[in-house]
Design a protein around this nucleic acid. Structure first.
Length: 558
RNA sequence: GGGCGUGUAGCCUAGCCUGGAUAGGGCGCCGGGUUCCUAACCCGGCGGUCGGGGGUUCAAAUCCCCCCACGCCCGCCA
């Protein structure tokens, strides 16, 4: 019944109960039953009136009761409103984990934003969350970067030099991800037509997989990663831990995994001596029913190292969440099978999302030159925001313009990515990503600014006492209801990991505030002034809490 | 061929888990709103076979089946 109540919440704040089922069970007509029930049903606490509308029983929520309850909770929790101090779990959220081979592009940040937002939500709900970035410093892609930078640009193959001509090649002051990543697409193309070079890269890969690290390899990967983190910091994404894939080779845990797999229940030898797990009957595609975990020469594969990583992760974190593109689904299933083979009973949880594509539906790829770099997008967004700020606030000090522009840009980008359900493929369009209006981050930020401005101009630091009985306007009641919904939204996201619901709610709340702001005078109000300031304060706190979880900066002015 | 996902107005999208009253928003378009708390706002209008078909049900965007379209995956790559 409580389920039906929530689902059927109407625009006037009433809660509706459909009586068809009850009527059928009682052999009655639904509308008659509703009328009868309305007459007899005593209004429970918080309900002002029980009324029959057709076959529905409508419970009108008492706005005074709702406002008192909501603002009581708000006063106790402040900016942590919507959070919880229920039973805490130890959780790991792994996200982004892009190869350290160059600057982050927009296609990657859906992972970052989903993961970071989820981590924020789980933290707000009281869990002990550790975010991890799994750094693949062992595979072929990292090897390619190491290969080209093993010599100075002056000694690079002519084709590669030509492809990056005109760029500063050896400028140590340049950010490392940009610098080291620049030749990457050209190297990738070059290797396709130069088998001897590909063999050299292969040798590096083999060395890495055998646990050896070529000169400069580690240094370049680390510096590149640091550069990438500068980009992510611009949208408020940081990590607690970086876990290097090579560390599982170095500490022997991959070897131990291989040992365990050799005597695993379904271990088999391939004809050439490779070690595999027979996964037939495990609901994997037929072609994948042999999971090769070690080559004939004994070196490990990505999935093998991933087993070592997850064994460590699951030992530390009872709840381990991996955010990954849905193209990794089969890999996830394979990983689960292998964890079972080595006797691990726990499993990670996977949050899958569809990739961001280019407007024509193609994949974003650095190699193909179809990627939009995160920095480029943020620079463009910041530039647009600057123009807007100067227009609205001509005498603004330059540092304020910068702070606001960067906050707006960051908010616009984060919101734009967070707003869509992860199951949907999203085509990246500049004009959409750079929108500051409508269903956007700045729309929500602006509502927060308006509320802040009202409180600042009130001449009082608060706190303001809410006299719930003075709330009368429809816009006031709607705003109270919107504020009251927030804890349920956070709880929903905690349960489903559907972080986009936060973005949807953020817009709804901002809209409710804007309508109130438009219709109801605050500073010039008479007897209701204090109550309205309290309402503004509550809306501001809630907007702030929502923006915090979205990772969208809150601004005092814009 | 198999698996996973998606299909909602010109474009983008929420709702689908857990069926319920006229399917919410946004962009764009048309028309309004500032002597008053920031117009990155608000109000009104136009625009919908919820991919198609069948089924279950008093009731289907929502559950089941079939089909179509699109994306992704099915390496001793990562």
């Amino acid at each position: 019944m409580s389920r039906q109540l929530e689902l059927a919440e109407g625009p006037e704040g009433e809660i509706a109960l459909a009586l068809h089922r009850n009527a059928a069970a009682a052999g009655r007509k639904a509308d008659e039953l509703a009328a009868e029930a309305a007459a007899e049903f005593p209004a429970p606490e918080g309900i002002r009136e029980v009324r029959a509308v057709g076959a529905y029983l409508n419970f009108a929520v008492d706005p005074v009761w709702l406002a008192r309850r909501t603002f009581g909770l708000l006063a106790r929790s402040g900016r942590r409103y919507g959070g919880s101090d229920g039973p805490a779990e130890t959780v790991c959220v792994e996200h982004t984990s892009a190869n350290p081979t160059g600057p982050l592009h927009v296609g990657r940040i859906r992972n970052s934003i989903i993961g970071d937002t989820l981590a924020r939500v789980l933290r707000a709900r009281g869990h002990a969350v550790t975010t991890q970035y799994y750094v693949d410093d062992v595979g072929r892609q990292a090897a390619m970067v190491t290969w080209i930078w093993a010599r100075p640009p002056s000694e690079w193959p002519e084709e590669i030099r030509r492809a990056v001509e005109g760029s500063r090649l050896d400028d140590a002051s340049e950010r490392a991800d940009v610098r080291y990543g620049r030749p990457y697409p050209a190297v990738s193309a070059y290797l396709k037509t130069h088998p001897e070079a590909a063999a050299e890269v292969g040798a590096i890969t083999e060395a890495l997989e055998a646990g050896r690290s070529p000169p400069r390899h580690r240094e370049i990967a680390r510096a590149t990663l640091e550069g990438m983190m500068v980009s992510l910091a611009r949208i408020g994404v940081t990590f607690d831990e970086f876990v290097w894939e090579s560390s599982f080779l170095a500490d022997g845990s991959v070897a131990r995994v291989l040992e365990a797999l050799r005597s695993a229940p379904h271990a088999v030898r391939e004809e050439n001596g490779a070690l595999a797990i027979d996964a037939s009957g495990r609901n994997l595609p037929k072609e994948s029913d042999r999971i090769v975990v070690a080559r004939a020469n004994g070196t490990s594969l990505y999935v093998t190292r991933d087993v070592a990583y997850h064994l460590q992760k699951l030992a530390r974190f009872p709840r381990a969440i991996d955010v990954m593109g849905q193209d990794h689904l089969l890999h996830a299933r394979t990983l689960e099978v292998l964890l079972g083979e080595v006797g691990e009973t726990r499993r990670p949880q996977f949050v899958l999302y569809q990739y961001l594509t280019t407007p024509d539906g193609g994949g974003m790829s650095t190699r193909k030159g179809t990627a939009v770099h995160l920095d480029h997008l943020l620079d463009e967004a910041t530039e647009r925001a600057r123009a807007e700020v100067r227009l609205r606030w001509p005498e603004s000090p330059p540092e304020a313009v910068e702070r606001i522009s960067q906050g707006v840009a960051s908010g616009a980008v984060r919101y734009h990515i967070a707003r869509v359900a992860p199951d949907k493929a999203v085509a990246f369009r500049w004009e959409d990503a750079l929108s500051f209006e409508g269903r956007s981050g700045p729309f929500v930020q602006y509502a927060f600014v308006r509320a802040t401005s009202l409180l600042r101009k009130s001449g009082s630091g608060g706190p303001f006492a809410l006299d719930a009985a003075q709330l009368a306007a429809l816009e006031e009641l709607a705003l109270v209801r919107a504020i009251a919904r927030w804890p349920r939204i956070v709880a929903y996201v905690e349960r489903t990991y559907h972080v986009h619901a936060i973005a949807t709610y953020a817009h709804d709340l901002a809209e409710a505030f804007n309508r109130f702001y438009q219709q109801v005078p605050v500073l010039k109000a008479g007897a209701e002034r204090e109550s309205r300031l309290a309402l503004v304060d509550g809306a501001r706190t809630t907007l702030g809490a929502v923006l915090d979880l979205l990772g969208v900066p809150t601004l005092e002015r814009m």
